[in-house]
């Protein structure tokens, strides 16, 4: 099974987008950043990964976009087993997913349209595809009215919407977000949450690692909680959880 064999949209024959099989990640000799994690995320699902700072949320996502290899166990994404940097075809994998971070990473000397188009140009897309996909992606995140604005002319929430549009412009079946609302005020965060929800409604599998309690509580989606690298809770429709504190 190769990544590029997959056509867009959920595939009945292979419903599991992400599988973690007894995954452990040890950066050093100390306590592993993840230990013995098992989980399955199905095609088209919306999942929050929650937990205190240092619980292992970012590490879990890095495994999925193959920025990191598991020390033990297996990570399978879209039917492909990822064996770390050497073993996985990073370009092919990342064309099948979008990734969004807390530090947004727009290019300051390019406007909104060019920032989103950049992701397509990098993978060799032509003008026609760019002219078709970029407005669609901007429409989806509610930024279609400001294609000529430069990042410094936008609020943090608007910049994050553009970053999400850039992640989605190639219509990947999977969107990963690591603390997408980390720097935003609560109202703006809810706006981002709604955008992510809309993207999921359109069929994209969404995984969000977050600290943002109001957002998680409001959306009532599947919640996976990590604590000190262990999976301690997995609820189909849950909230942020009372026990999480950064002092843990």
């Amino acid at each position: 099974m190769r990544l590029d064999d997959r056509s867009a949209g959920p595939r009945p024959g292979f419903p599991r987008m992400i599988v973690f099989d007894n995954v452990t990640v040890a950066y050093s000799q100390e306590r592993p950043a993840l230990s013995g994690v098992n989980l399955t995320i199905t095609d088209g699902a919306f999942t929050y990964i929650v937990g205190a700072t240092g619980a292992g949320k970012s590490t879990l996502l890095r495994l999925v976009y193959c920025d990191l290899a598991p020390t033990q166990g297996a990570v399978i994404v879209d039917g492909v087993r990822l064996d770390g940097r050497r073993g996985c075809d990073v370009p092919a994998l990342r064309r099948r997913m979008g990734v969004v971070f807390q530090d947004i990473g727009l290019l300051p000397d390019r406007n909104v349209y060019e920032n989103v188009a950049f992701a397509l140009r990098v993978i060799g897309a032509g003008h026609r595809k760019i002219r078709r996909n970029v407005p669609d992606a901007l429409e989806l995140v509610g930024m279609v009215h400001r294609p000529d604005a430069y990042p410094r002319q936008l609020s943090g929430g608007e910049q994050q919407r553009v970053a999400i549009a850039r992640a989605l412009v190639n219509n990947p079946p999977l969107l990963l977000a690591d603390e997408p609302t980390g720097n935003l005020d609560p109202d703006t965060s809810m706006g981002i949450a709604e955008v992510l929800d809309r993207i999921n409604q359109a069929g994209t599998t969404v995984v969000v690692a977050t600290h943002d309690q109001p957002m998680v509580d409001a959306m009532q989606r599947r919640v996976i909680e990590l604590s000190r690298g262990r999976l301690v809770r997995d609820e189909e429709r849950g909230g942020y959880g009372a026990s999480i504190s950064d002092e843990a």
Partner: peptide, 16 residues
């Protein structure tokens, strides 16, 4: 460095 990081993230090949 920003461009390079983004290119990596969105699936640019090494050659590109």
């Amino acid at each position: 460095r920003r461009e390079i990081a983004i290119m990596r993230l969105v699936g640019a090949t090494r050659a590109l």
